[in-house]
Amino acid sequence: MTRFTFPPSIASRPVWGTLLPRKGTAFLMIADAEGAEALIDLAKAAPDLMAAADVVYLPKGTGTRFSDALRAAGPGTLYIGPSFDAAEPRIKRMLADARMGLQIFLTGTEGLMGRAMALALAAGTPVDAIQTEHRGSVARRMQCVHCKGFTEDVMTDPFVCAHCGLNLFVRDHYSRRFGAYQGVCVDAEDPGVIPPQKELYS
């Protein structure tokens, strides 16, 4: 399943869009895993745009399943990296060098889009110059409200904070500054009573 219709939620939860060709002076595309398919779709609709684009791609365990096809779609430059953390200095540099008219395309998991959008906004990119499209896993990037650590790719509710070990429930409240949802201790009022884990959206 690479496309998912998210149920309606509260006002802070982002609503992801569909990538569309746009005019611009430069194009930065950042994708992980199945997000490559959205870029390939975009390239079919606008091959010239892809030929002018700088693409940062994180296969995230998909190997060459999408990366070969992405390369074949003819991006201007293509960087394939092992993780967001590894790619982050490069993305920051690209954003720092950006001029007026840069168009940004983010696609893949919510965690990837959230982190990349937070970097772009912090670098001063206007929000209307950023497009998004969700593809692939519905896992969330969560911030523990207690220890402030981030846990990536959370698929269950509740889950265990990767930093402090508290059992956290998954809220829909979302911070664009962090690119993350809020995780809150699930057994604060009944210590030790942890509800059974459920897969998100199940």
Binding site: I10, A11, S12, R13, Q143, V145, K148, R171, D172, H173, Y174, S175, R176, R177, F178, Q182
Partner: peptide
Amino acid sequence: WSLDFDIGMSFMQWHAP
């Protein structure tokens, strides 16, 4: 509510919950 989490949010965003 958490200032650290909500800082930077718009009126509707921080009232979302």
